[in-house]
Simulated assay, not measured.
Amino acid sequence: MSTTNYTIRQAATGDIPATLAMKLAAWRETYAGQRPESFFELEESRREAQIDWWTRGLAAGAELWIATDDEGRIVGCAGGAPVLDEDADTGAVAELQMLYILAEAYGTGLGARLLQASIGNLSAVLWVLEHNPRAQAFYRKHGFELDGAREQLSDVWGGLYEVRMVRPGLHG
């Protein structure tokens, strides 16, 4: 059982490089068996472009939430936004666009805290890899259910599918 105290706050521009490094580490932990090493190397090679993209997003008003441990290391991130047109049929008002934490923080409640920070109790939609049972179980625990929508991914994610999960707004 971890005794680490995590702090959750909105990210600032200076947090972006470390957040992207954490996200890639979380991808390695989660997707190592589903993606070849070249996938992770390509993502690493795109780091500067991603920093620029995320910096512009924050400047435009996007909210990115990060979690830091006792030493100030970023160990998780989450982001939500208004639902996109293609998911409007779900009735949701928000989309959870990302939620990543390092394996060392699994089971600590950090994921739930980041979920709450990013989308609160709003009705929401998210897309998750079809073969990520741990993530799907986490989302079910927090009121999301599969709705039958399934989408094949392309580019470097080719050969994988995402499934859509939806939850009604929560009370309390």
Rank of each mutant, 00 (worst) to 15 (best):
L20C: 12
A60E: 00
G79R: 14
D147I: 07
T7H: 01
Y139N: 11
A11W: 03
D52A: 10
G169P: 10
L58E: 06
A117Q: 06
G91K: 01
A103N: 07
V75T: 15
L153E: 13
V163S: 05
I66A: 02
E86I: 02
P17D: 03
T90H: 04
V166G: 11
K141D: 12
L170E: 10
E37C: 02
A78D: 02
R56V: 11
I16Y: 04
R9D: 04
D147T: 05
T13M: 02
W127P: 01
G120P: 06
I8Q: 05
A78S: 14
D15N: 02
T108S: 15
G111W: 10
D147H: 12
Q34T: 02
G14I: 00
G61R: 04
V83Q: 06
R9F: 00
T19M: 14
R150N: 06
L146V: 01
A59G: 01
I51C: 13
E162A: 12
S45T: 08
K141E: 12
L102F: 10
E43Y: 11
L114M: 07
L146M: 08
L115D: 14
V156W: 13
E104L: 11
T90G: 03
S154K: 15
D70Y: 09
L170P: 09
G143K: 08
V163R: 11
L20T: 06
G61H: 02
V163W: 10
M1V: 13
D147R: 13
P36R: 10
D69P: 15
M22G: 03
W53S: 11
W27F: 08
I66G: 04
T4W: 00
R150E: 12
D52I: 09
S123M: 01
L146Q: 06
Y6D: 01
A59T: 10
L122G: 10
T30M: 08
A88Y: 01
T30V: 07
G80E: 07
I8C: 10
P82R: 08
G61L: 00
E95G: 09
L129M: 15
Y139P: 02
I51N: 09
G14A: 12
T30S: 09
G111F: 08
N132I: 01
G172Y: 01
G172E: 12
V166S: 09
S123G: 15
I16P: 03
Q152N: 03
N132T: 01
L64S: 04
M165K: 13
R35K: 05
R35D: 07
I8N: 05
G111V: 14
L160V: 05
R134G: 05
A62T: 04
A105F: 14
Q97M: 13
Q10T: 05
G79S: 12
V163N: 04
A49R: 15
A81Q: 11
E86W: 07
I74P: 00
I74Y: 07
T19S: 13
